[in-house]
């Protein structure tokens, strides 16, 4: 066992267990905090995969913005019946079976792939941030997808503000 294998196993175990807690905790604030732990595990995986920019973005965007937004939503929609009673709907058993089925299907399909046990290519990844920046703004790269994503984000944020804007006839 090399050090990075041990690091991977610890990271994967912690974040998988935290993900199980996210979907099973009755208390939504606890679920949101476990979601932060899972997202941090994914950030560690990005570091192990030598993608430092994505690791930073993961911490800033996911943990810094999305998880905090989740916690705000949990606190704004607190319900007295939230902390008692069944957190699962009546489809929970079918949902569990479907998730198990998807997991085994994915493992079987990946297992049949010829490069399933491949090790990383020897290659210099130190310039990948520059490469990513160039690819996202070059005309023969992903500039159109990048601009569409930015317009989507702008539209979604304006739409979100419109949806929650208080109206006169709120409680008609």
């Amino acid at each position: 066992m090399t050090p990075d294998q041990i690091l991977f196993i610890v990271t994967a175990l912690i974040s998988t267990l935290a993900a199980v807690m996210v979907v099973s905790r009755r208390n939504m604030v606890h679920a949101a905090l476990f979601l932060v732990l899972t997202l941090f595990g994914v950030a560690v995986a990005f570091v192990l995969l030598e993608a430092p920019f994505l690791a930073v973005v993961q911490v800033l965007v996911y943990i810094g913005a999305i998880a905090i937004l989740m916690i705000f939503a949990v606190m704004l929609t607190r319900n007295v019946t939230d902390d008692s009673g069944d957190p699962f709907n009546k489809n929970a058993r079918v949902g569990g079976l479907a998730a198990l089925f998807v997991f085994s299907l994915l493992v079987v399909m990946f297992g049949g792939w010829s490069q399933f046990t491949a090790y990383p290519q020897a290659g210099d990844t130190s310039g990948s941030i520059v490469q990513l920046g160039v690819a996202l703004t070059a005309a023969d790269g992903y500039v159109i997808a990048f601009e569409v994503a930015s317009m989507l984000l702008l539209g979604a944020l304006v739409g979100a503000i419109f949806v929650v804007w208080p109206r006169q006839n709120e409680n008609e």
């Binding site: 994914v42 929970a92 479907a98 997991f103 994915l106």
Partner: peptide, 12 residues
Amino acid sequence: LFSIGLFGVLSR
């Protein structure tokens, strides 16, 4: 992770 998320979507 994907399957755990799928379970959460289907059953919470």
